[in-house]
Simulated scan of single mutants.
Amino acid sequence: MTYDPFTRGAHPVGVRSDLWTDTERQRTLPVEIWYPAHDHHRGHDLDPEHWDTFSPGWVAEGQANPADVVPQTAVRNADWADPSAEHPLILLIHGYAGFRREATFLGTHLASHGYVVVSPDVVGSTFLDVNAFLTAEEPSLTSPAEHDGEPDDDNDHLLTIAQNRKKDIPFLIDTATATLPVRPHGVGVTGASFGGWSSIVAPAVDDRVTAVVPMCPAGGDSPVADPDNGFVTELALDWHNDAPTLVLAADRDSLLPLYGQLALFRSLPATRKRMVVLARADHNHFVDDIDTGQAWLKEFAEQLAALFPDGPGDWPRVARSVEPMERLVPGDKAKLAWQGMVTAHFDAHLSDDPGAKAFVSTDPDAVLAARGIDTYTIEFGSPSSAVTTHRAR
């Protein structure tokens, strides 16, 4: 059978939630766990009657109404496919002002291909945490122009988040290997924005991480990059392993523009690294509800522009750069692209799948163009770090 990472995998998908506590730091992280389920659940994960539902991360616990509830293509508390097997582990880490279920399209897809995927709520960095921080910072003024807030507050906030994320990664791997049927080595990490930043630092903070997929990663130059914030000061590139790296980016990223991600990509220490750029896509083309995310991004940028008119960050510029969804690539195409590319990367470099190895050696732009998805790719593929670029015509 021809290898195809874009289609749903062979396994039905289960999902569980848990609370994992790092007793040394007195830090508890809610986690979502997607995993291959027992065959007697086959078809249930694709049947709306059996789908799990949850309240999105922007709704406080217990305050959701029926209109807020959203589904995911997984069966809640399904039986494991084989509790004695050691599945490869992937950490899926959300961005700033995100939540653990913001990319169920990717978590469930990877689980269907045999992975155990752990996605934490990064406490201090969730939507509700960030909203509480911004609400506390915002003065009771009638005009944003009167705001005289302290930019250092925002830098300290981001620094604390960055430092916590670096310590969270080894803790999550430790807990997963101690409590779940996963192998204790060959771990993959992916995530968008601050989750992309987390993917980049992961090989530096834990030698069990051997492949990464940073999506629209923070850490490079941008209108919101400040020399004193955690994106910059805590970025670690002293990797333990030469982890094969796939960077996924959007060519119209209004928050972290492509020029910064290109420079960041070039600085990564991996000798095998590839960057696939999706055309007509913005910063939130990496989550489940891209339409809602795009509208929120503009509101968020406008809120920060009012809160920090003189910095840190040129938030008015970001707010002006956010385009309406009708001018951008549809969300279903973005999600299909990411499902296939992320799965193939991990299949090739974590699961040693021959079909995946052959797939990742082909022209990704031609593969995606055949599915109506417009991309271009930049690649460092040899020890000499020669650069190749290609785009489907």
Rank of each mutant, 00 (worst) to 15 (best):
A250R: 06
P316T: 06
A249V: 03
V75Q: 04
T375N: 10
L128E: 01
T21N: 09
G188E: 02
L246A: 09
T377P: 13
Q294C: 03
P330H: 06
P36Q: 05
H185N: 13
S385P: 01
D288W: 07
A202P: 03
D154H: 15
E86A: 14
E102P: 05
F300Y: 08
T142W: 11
W197T: 09
L29G: 01
V224T: 11
I33V: 15
T190H: 08
I33L: 11
P330A: 11
P66N: 12
H50V: 00
L29T: 13
P269I: 11
P244S: 02
T362N: 14
A111P: 12
F300Q: 06
W239M: 00
Q72E: 14
A356H: 03
R16S: 13
H345M: 05
L159R: 11
A60L: 09
E234T: 14
E234G: 06
P383F: 09
S119N: 14
N65K: 15
P312V: 02
H87L: 09
R101K: 14
H390Y: 07
R327N: 13
L297P: 03
A103N: 14
R317W: 05
G381P: 07
K333D: 09
D352W: 04
A305P: 01
I90M: 06
L89I: 07
E326K: 08
T7V: 15
A78C: 13
R76M: 15
D314E: 05
P330Y: 04
I173P: 11
H157F: 15
A176H: 14
L278Y: 10
D289T: 06
V59L: 04
K333N: 05
A103W: 00
T343R: 15
I378Q: 03
A132Y: 00
G313K: 07
L235S: 12
P184W: 03
G372M: 07
Y3H: 07
A263C: 03
V247Q: 09
